[in-house]
Design a protein around this nucleic acid. Structure first.
Lengths: 217, 217, 217, 217
DNA sequence: CATGAATGAGGGTTCATTCAT
DNA sequence: CATGAATGAACCCTCATTCAT
């Protein structure tokens, strides 16, 4: 009996928290990471100030939660598909392709990360970890030639983040993405012919969760 | 007589404005582009609130002025040396190398651009123009293979901006820069062997003006 | 339970708002309608800056609220007594008499309206409506001879506002008011003998609410 | 020789001062008596800040100078014509008529006095003196019945100032002015028939000086 | 645990006035 | 006597956070 009440309460709490993170993500994407959002946030979420502070001790904490959630959901939409492949080169291509496709389908992601830049990526964290993982394996297998791991990450992350900026200003199509992927693989030192082949693979679509925070308001 | 007075006044005005831009640049780099800085700014510049608003109608206008000045001074320190070379590949290598070296010598530049990301680069403007110029020539000469101009720019700008973030966290040496340059040239589609050769050239040092805003406080 | 909490909150809010309007009215009367008053206002009301802006979006909005409240309270103190009479001439006499008496008892009213002049009266609004109402009826009954309604209003409002200025500089007694009333009625075209009679009526005293904003600080 | 130089200098000084008063008058009328005007003022007058402060010690002093000048010029445009008549009643009618006509021709006057209300009139000063003069004579000759001099002034000034407000909102014609004059005379206690006759007199037009500050910019 | 009224430090901006040239 | 760069007190307003109910 008490267990039940506790459980119901916890679920409700989680739902409320999610509503806040969802609304905050869209507001931060739209208005920038330093914009004041609490007033609008609680309005959009239909909650009171007090409730907000019951869930997050500060605005900063909210931002961290959003960045983490964005990170988790991107990885969650992309990595399971990436892991179906073996070769680090294919995996890297797959990851980049699906991330950009995801951002095309939900431009709010591009806006959030373009606005937030480094800050947002670092706060989220896991992106770098995943890129690093494949960069390392690729080097071990002699596919990639870049020695320095952090350089390898920059070579992937830099163009992808810039592409987010680009796709907010004009349509980008499958060919654009393929060219981007090919260039990134070349930058990492993959042989030209391999890069050509790998960048031509069709990786399907990213698969965000049903109730993803990326969905439109 | 009147000319003299006018001239003295104008010079004075220019000096004051420069003091403001100088101090603002360092503060924005340190505290982020959205941080409130006017209070500290006028304190550091040793000027009054009113003086600030005699020179800039708003904080935003100050930011634009700083971004423009940063852009002008970077280009001014780098482009004259870049233009001594002929080949677009060499020029691109030279430009990237000198920019990163400049940021190594004056990390405040890295901080400003890493913090400001896209915003700061766009506001300044000229960087993209210069990259675009060489990307175009390189393609015309069959050196680079990337069709889309904005993609080419992203492939250069992205890794460089990320490198600015990296050099704030740890030392990066000449080899790191060479590896970066080589990767960027590869990404643009330059032949592997050429990329190797070009990235080995020694481009000397950037030459910022004596009274550059980059100098330490 | 929830109703109770809501009700208590609302009452509290209303009390706070009233404190702000009250203090603002006295400050505006003392220092003029264009004077900066927020600092003193919140000090006198014992409230914080934020509270002020929770109740009024801007200083202008505060002024409008004060003007409206002044208008409502003057009408509320005077009109019920005016309406006990039938004849437009008597009503007009009654209204003018009671308004001037009210201003004599609470010179802060005179100060507010003398300072604010037209602006304050217009913003409040209702004064002109009430005067217009009686001017119209008086003309319909052939008592007043002034054709143009706005002229009729000016003939009443002008002298009364000037009288507010006068009573701030020297005492004015019942006879002064009677002379004023008589002159206004004559100006409107009332027959001389009637004007004499009507201006001799004793109209008692205005009856402001207990917690009127007119009361002294 | 020196006399000549001195004289030329003084004349220049007077012209400069006049330019300032002229521009200030129009700005104050347009933007209100509490509006900041110095920046625009010196711009419109084509003078420097320093020059302004060579002529007026403070903004307040400028305002006083403008109010005085307005007063002098109104009286100067109207009183010479008023004094052609003998009867206080006719003179009062003449003065009111010409003042209102003047404000119709130069609405900037109405704006200045409507905005400034009592303040502007008092600061200027002389209006009340002239009205008082005729009110007194009229009473001595048994034409007017109002005992209290300041009440008499209020009965004239009040409606006239209100009329200034009215003429800013809609056209007023000769009949409107005649009705206004008639009402004012009645208010002062003039016999009805006389009031009718006097208010029908055609008083011509006010005669402002060639270089009056009232002229359009 | 929810509510929303109240808080107040902190920010950007204005503008009358001064003063070195 | 003219100039206009510089001054700084004073102002309006925001918004993250607290806390009594």
């Amino acid at each position: 009996m008490l267990d039940h009440r506790t459980k119901v309460g916890l679920e409700r709490r989680q739902r409320t928290r999610r509503r806040l993170v969802f609304a905050a993500f869209h507001l931060l994407a739209e208005r920038g990471l330093d914009a004041p959002i609490i007033d609008l946030l609680i309005k959009q979420a239909g909650l009171s100030r007090g409730t907000f502070y019951n869930h997050f001790q500060s605005e900063r904490e909210l931002f961290m939660a959003v960045a983490a959630e964005v990170s988790v959901e991107i990885i969650g939409s992309v990595d399971p598909i990436v892991l179906r492949h073996e070769s680090p080169a294919v995996r890297m291509a797959c990851g980049v392709t699906l991330c950009v496709k995801l951002a095309c389908r939900y431009p709010v992601i591009a806006r959030f990360l373009a606005n937030g830049g480094t800050q947002a990526v670092f706060a989220g964290g896991s992106a770098m970890q995943v890129i690093g993982r494949e960069a390392l394996r690729g080097r071990e297998q002699g596919l990639f030639k870049v020695e320095d791991l952090s350089l390898a990450i920059d070579l992937v992350l830099g163009p992808v983040l810039c592409t987010f900026g680009t796709l907010l200003q004009r349509e980008i199509d499958a060919d654009y993405i393929k060219a981007l992927v090919r260039s990134i693989l070349l930058a990492l030192g993959l042989e030209s012919q391999l890069a050509d082949e790998v960048s031509q693979i069709n990786f399907g679509e990213p698969e965000p969760a049903e109730d993803s925070i990326f969905r439109e308001l």
